[in-house]
């Protein structure tokens, strides 16, 4: 019904904008189309009962990571790809063929599978996720924060100008 219709709409929009995101020449359009795709994924999360992840997806990806992309694109003056003459035709054909095979193969396999209806309605509320995060996954949680710190220091070192 309602949710089903929303999913198929979102899936079509997501796939189309993903295609634009990887194929358009203009890097700003690439980033923006990816925002649309990630938004569609967030809606899918909401339909799957993962409401916290849906909000986090928009907050983290659309609100921070892709803004960073846009910032860098604009900082570098929206660089475009080199002209067609310089491109490597074999690389294009092989890459597209491989991706096509992967897509067709996985759809062929998945379409043949019949699974039971989803087990339970495990609602991904902030409270439920929080209990898991600081319970069984506490070590991984702390480890991620160390990773983020390391990434921050690394990024700073990379872009620091030598005086």
């Amino acid at each position: 019904m309602m949710g089903t219709a929303v999913f198929y709409l979102v899936a079509v929009v997501g796939v189309v904008s993903a295609l634009v995101a990887v194929s358009h020449k203009n890097p700003v359009v690439n980033v923006l189309s990816l925002v649309v795709t990630l938004f569609c994924i967030a809606v899918s999360y909401a339909l799957l009962g993962a409401e916290f992840l849906a909000a986090a997806q928009i907050l983290v990806y659309a609100g921070a990571i892709l803004v960073l992309f846009l910032f860098v694109v604009m900082l570098l003056g929206a660089p475009e790809e080199p002209p067609v003459g310089e491109r490597r035709p074999f690389q294009r054909v092989a890459g597209l063929a491989l991706a096509g095979i992967a897509a067709a193969g996985s759809i062929a396999v998945l379409a043949g599978i019949r699974v039971a209806a989803p087990a339970g309605a495990a609602q991904g509320t902030a409270e439920a996720l929080g209990r898991l995060l600081v319970g069984p996954y506490l070590f991984a949680f702390e480890f991620i924060s160390v990773l983020l710190l390391a990434a921050m220091v690394g990024a700073l070192m990379l872009v620091k100008r030598k005086h």
Partner: peptide, 23 residues
Amino acid sequence: VIFAALLFAIGAAGVLVRRSGIS
């Protein structure tokens, strides 16, 4: 999962074909 597989394939195509680091 089919939706996810399609997105994955498109992303992989982008990584294989594009040559600008941002893409």
